[in-house]
Amino acid sequence: MGTAEFLNIAIEAVLDYVGEPHNYGVYVVWTCKTLQNNKALLSTTLSDGMYFEATYNGDKKELYLDAYKKEKNVCIKVED
Rank of each mutant, 00 (worst) to 15 (best):
M1W: 08
T3C: 05
T3V: 13
T3L: 13
A4V: 10
A4I: 04
A4Q: 07
A4W: 12
A4M: 13
E5H: 00
E5S: 01
F6C: 11
N8S: 13
I9N: 13
I9D: 14
A10F: 04
E12Y: 11
A13R: 06
A13W: 08
A13T: 02
V14M: 05
L15R: 06
D16E: 02
V18G: 05
V18K: 11
G19H: 03
G19P: 01
G19I: 12
G19Q: 03
E20M: 04
E20C: 09
P21K: 01
P21Q: 07
P21D: 11
H22N: 04
H22Q: 06
N23K: 03
N23Q: 03
V26G: 00
Y27M: 08
V28C: 14
V28N: 04
V29T: 15
V29R: 15
V29S: 05
T31V: 09
C32P: 00
C32F: 12
T34Y: 14
T34L: 10
T34S: 06
Q36R: 14
Q36S: 15
N37W: 04
N37I: 02
N38E: 09
K39M: 10
K39Q: 04
K39A: 04
L41Y: 05
L41M: 07
L42S: 06
T44G: 05
T44E: 02
T44D: 04
T44Q: 07
T45P: 08
T45V: 10
T45R: 01
L46S: 04
L46R: 08
L46T: 03
S47W: 14
D48L: 03
D48A: 07
D48I: 08
G49T: 02
G49F: 02
M50W: 11
F52W: 00
F52K: 00
A54I: 06
A54T: 12
T55H: 11
T55L: 08
Y56L: 01
N57C: 08
D59F: 15
K60L: 05
E62T: 06
E62W: 06
E62R: 14
L63A: 03
L63G: 10
L63V: 10
Y64C: 02
Y64R: 11
L65S: 09
L65A: 04
D66R: 01
D66L: 02
A67R: 00
Y68Q: 05
K70H: 12
K70G: 13
E71C: 12
E71V: 13
K72F: 07
K72P: 11
N73Q: 15
V74P: 01
V74H: 00
V74F: 01
C75Y: 06
I76K: 05
I76W: 06
E79F: 12
E79W: 13
D80F: 03
D80Q: 15
